[in-house]
Nucleic acid binder design. Structure first.
Lengths: 233, 233
DNA sequence: CCAAAAGTGTTAAACGTACACCCATGA
DNA sequence: TCATGGGTGTACGTTTAACACTTTTGG
């Protein structure tokens, strides 16, 4: 995958291990809070380095695994979750980021609220993404970057559904945006924006229970494809 | 940099080599063409696999090198160039992308027109980015993705300077945009857009030679910092 | 004086945003 | 009937895009 021309002063392909980790976002509705909060699952490390500290779920890249496969696998193994969205975030490879040299290919993912609500395995806990403790390695920076990407991407793509069930109301959708962007959105303008985009399909269902019933929508999965540029792999 | 919890079914940290390659963009003015074209340097492979085919400049990651350092180094070694812009593009790691397992961290870079005009080393040649021959490995896809990113980024950031010398006219700048986006832009509106952004500093110089002289500008380097989000490393 | 690029002005459509208002339900 | 969220209408400021027009040079 590369061209080795001229003489490399650095040691030729030294022993560098490749890891894959994932920043997993979901939403959690606290009884007290008015707005859902963005939460991520972390794993407590059971060995050195950084034993006892919380870290992103991940693992070593297998010899016969693609990167995305490895992300899905480690995500499932460590948290038991299946993501509704998965995308590469960045490759981290600073020499001093770990006592033993390792390059981490980091992915980020979304899991639906109902899925993330299931009881977490031992050693896994959910944290508010905006107020984390000190994590192992450079994982605090990584989460920070992933959050930035999430907020950014919510502005120009339809990833918000990755956090919603099949059917949802416009208020549900708006709540997701409000939770991610951390600010109020005008319900009237929000409605127009989404139905101008033409990605929402109204169903015959309504959600009842409080005040006027709200129409249930689902996403038009046909639009999914044209969404992003020439995505690799 | 990762958490090894539970048992990994895949072979634990197998021997996977890490390479760093770079897609380098510059502009070339052909005498005949009205608009500059986007060009990239490629290196002819001197060994298997894909011997004799053109490939992206790159090399193996050294044991004591950060990723960006490796990108700069291989870029310099293989092409003799120093970039004015360098950013990570994507990590490619499909199992079948190379006969021997390798993960490539790919960067993309810009070099100024005057720099890229210097004679290229043996085994290095410049190609029009939009009409490449069949390259080694998955490098055609990688260039395609890099081009998409370049076009995208030119729309919301000021990377265009990476292709221009210290002093330039608004027509120069507009030509860069036109070359990348491959369409004409209205000179009047373009002028207003850039000086609304406040990133351009007018100098006292003018470029003369044909018709009315055009004012020379330079970039405000103080604006550089706030540009992007929480950039890692 | 003429051609052509540099640079300014004007207008209309598109878009974002604020907010007044009506509708339908549970309590 | 009232409170509240669902849903519609409207008005206004900003941005985008098209294009007419004036300025300044070389030839």
């Amino acid at each position: 995958m590369t061209t080795t021309t001229s003489t490399s002063p650095a040691t030729a392909h030294a022993d560098i291990r490749v890891a894959v980790s994932t920043v997993i976002f979901s939403l959690r509705r606290e009884p007290g809070r008015e707005r859902p909060s963005v939460v991520i699952p972390l794993v407590r490390r059971t060995r050195a380095p950084h034993e006892g500290q919380w870290a992103l779920p991940g693992g070593w890249l297998g010899a016969d695994e693609d990167l995305e496969m490895a992300a899905s696998r480690t995500l499932r193994e460590t948290t038991g979750l299946a993501p509704s969205f998965l995308e590469q975030l960045y490759a981290f490879g600073a020499v001093d980021r770990s006592p033993t040299r390792a390059v981490s290919i980091v992915y980020w993912a979304l899991v639906r609220e109902d899925v993330s609500a299931r009881p977490a395995p031992e050693n896994v806990a959910w944290f508010d993404a905006t107020s984390l403790p000190a994590l192992a390695f450079d994982h605090n920076q990584i989460v920070e970057y992933a959050l930035w990407r999430l907020r950014n991407k919510v502005g120009y793509s339809r990833i918000a559904h990755g956090l919603l069930p099949e059917l949802f109301t416009l208020a549900d959708l708006r709540e997701v945006y409000e939770a991610i962007l951390d600010r109020r959105l005008d319900p009237a303008n929000f409605r127009r924006q989404v139905d101008t985009s033409g990605t929402l399909i109204p169903t015959d269902g309504f959600r009842t229970g409080s005040h006027r019933p709200a129409r249930l929508y689902r996403y038009d999965h046909d639009v999914e494809l044209a969404e992003r540029g020439p995505l690799p792999e």
